[in-house]
Amino acid sequence: MKIGHWTSGLRHRIQAWALRRSPASRSVTLTQKRIYILPTLSGMMFLLLLFLLLLLAINYQNNLAYAATFLLGGMFIVSILHTYSNLAGLRITAVSGHPCFAGEMAGFTLKLQRPEKRVYEQLDFSWQEGPPLMLDMTGDTQVQIELACHAPSRGWCQPGPLRIQTRYPFGLFRAWTWINTDLRALVYPRPLPGGDLPPVASGEGEGLEMRHEGSDDFSGLTRFEPGMSPRRVAWKVFARGQGMHASEYVAHHDRKLWLDWDGWPALNVEQRLSRLSYWVVRLAHTNQPYGLRLPGKVYPPATGDAQRQRLLQALALFRLPETQVEAER
């Protein structure tokens, strides 16, 4: 237990040192300055094997056994270069972070580029808090990957340093690097279903979601964001391989709804934000203009994804410390 504590402390210190050596930037080419390499456990076992073979050679005074031992020893050394070159030269560009709801995974888009003549296999990408992604780069010289990170609470999700590591080709060594990407993703409050629409909207908000769907005019496509209704996905566009998009409709009516901070006095701050988040998502499925009143801030009613994003962002960053909100300005 203590040792585990000690090693993890050490690991953090090494990581901090490595990150100090390579400040954050959008785009990084991996070079010897940032790549670290050490034998793995199976590399250690291989060394043990070499030791046994050497004992065999010495005790039987067998020169061919010596030769076999040295051949494998040479292979061990050469494989350092192979493992190293399976990272070196790779260029990583931090592209963007995608918003999500608290408790979900925030996605981050990274662009990877490889030199024309080089291939990379079994690259293992991961944030500190998130599932790793294994990847071979043998085909296209440029690929985009989406790497997820746990986003436990609302606000900005900063995934911390990106770790890229590889044990290819023989698992004897692990080459790795840490990169500060300064990527971040907005984490909306986790939607808390329940409650009624605020009284101001009563009489007008009944069954809103279904009524106007077919009657509105199609006005264009927008990027699909988590939380949008699956019914809005432009499946034909998706089938053409052009990605997830949502159809946008223009509403022809001017019924206005207000979501109010004071609508749920029984809930605490976070619960209230979650409840509001739920209603924003729900109303965004309709074409009903809706606005939001937060203490000290009023967002006039509107429709569309811009409104939805604006409101969710406001909820996400509500009363967060200054450094976190900064980018809002």
Partner: peptide, 12 residues
Amino acid sequence: VLFPAIPLMLLL
């Protein structure tokens, strides 16, 4: 990996 290891083997 093995062919470059041959000169190393000879040296050793």
